[in-house]
């Protein structure tokens, strides 16, 4: 008994006392801004997207009820740690830098980071060519880290924004020359009327150290059991062909690398 009190007291003091351990209702932290086609709010106020469909399939598979908890992207890791929700499901790439602070599930999709710029036929996008140009990136993304490592030293100016949506808006306004972001979400932007300004320049050389191995669910370090559960769910969905089905429904076939059944 004394031990229990001591441990729970310690847990409290350390702030690692977790929400109800049975995960009766799992909350998924989703960045509150539009990130189509993965997560965005439609005009009826509902969250829709590839990732939302995946979430529903995953939660059905593991027998949980899941709900979306909106959160600011730039505070998403602290909010997870503060217990505001149980898992990050917001197209967060698994990389070493983040692994130091949170745990990840297996990857559930991966796509190429693409550089997009004004429609002018100039397809050269080597870091040297970007000298003197302005590149917009979303704060604390793998793309921001990549631009900082490869573009900034060659003389490009970086501008960081809270959301990719704002980057796109400024790219369309002509305030930026380029943005580096996830190819699939940029595709969505390029298809919109606003995106008429711009064209893809190409996928940048893949740096595994920065880009990591794809997107996974972000979890608290202590939630190993939840991690195992999610990983099993992801494997189940891969076996059942659910990933392909969702990807088909969002017309993304061939654009995403998906978990393979083994």
């Amino acid at each position: 008994m004394k031990n229990i009190i001591l441990t729970s007291g310690l847990a409290l003091a350390l702030g690692i006392f977790q929400a109800s351990p049975s995960w009766a209702d799992l909350k998924m932290g989703v960045a509150a801004e539009p990130y189509a086609p993965f997560t965005s709010k439609d005009a009826s106020g509902k969250w829709v997207g590839w990732e939302i469909d995946f979430m529903n399939a995953l939660c059905a598979d593991i027998g949980e009820k899941c709900s979306v908890e909106e959160v600011a992207w730039d505070g998403i890791i602290p909010a997870l740690q503060a217990g505001k929700f149980d898992a990050i499901m917001s197209s967060m790439s698994i990389n070493e830098e983040r692994r130091k602070v949170i745990k990840f599930s297996d990857m559930y999709y991966n796509s190429a980071p693409v550089l997009v710029g004004a429609k002018n036929g100039d397809k050269d996008f080597s870091p040297e060519h970007l000298k003197g140009k302005i590149v917009g990136v979303q704060v604390s993304t793998i793309h921001a880290a990549y631009a900082k490592k490869y573009f900034e030293p060659k003389g490009a100016t970086l501008k960081t924004y809270e959301t990719q949506d704002q980057v796109n808006a400024d790219l369309a306004a002509g305030r930026l020359d380029y943005t580096l972001a996830d190819g699939v979400t940029l595709d969505d932007f390029l298809k919109s009327e606003q995106g008429g300004c711009c064209e893809p320049k190409g996928a940048v050389p893949y740096d595994v150290e920065i880009f990591g191995v794809g997107v996974g669910l972000g979890l608290r370090q202590a939630d190993g059991a939840l991690q195992a559960k999610f990983n099993k769910g992801i494997a189940d969905l891969a076996k059942a062909g659910t990933f392909a089905k969702i990807t088909e429904a969002w017309k993304l076939t061939g654009k995403l690398r998906l978990p393979q059944a083994n």
């Binding site: 960045a31 801004e33 539009p34 709010k41 005009a43 959160v71 600011a72 808006a169 919109s192």
Partner: peptide, 20 residues
């Protein structure tokens, strides 16, 4: 809105971002 609670300011950003 900056910490991510969807009140009027954040809903405005979401609506503006999707509708352009």
């Amino acid at each position: 809105s900056i910490v991510g609670y969807t009140e009027l300011a954040l809903a405005t950003q979401q609506a503006a971002g999707v509708s352009k």
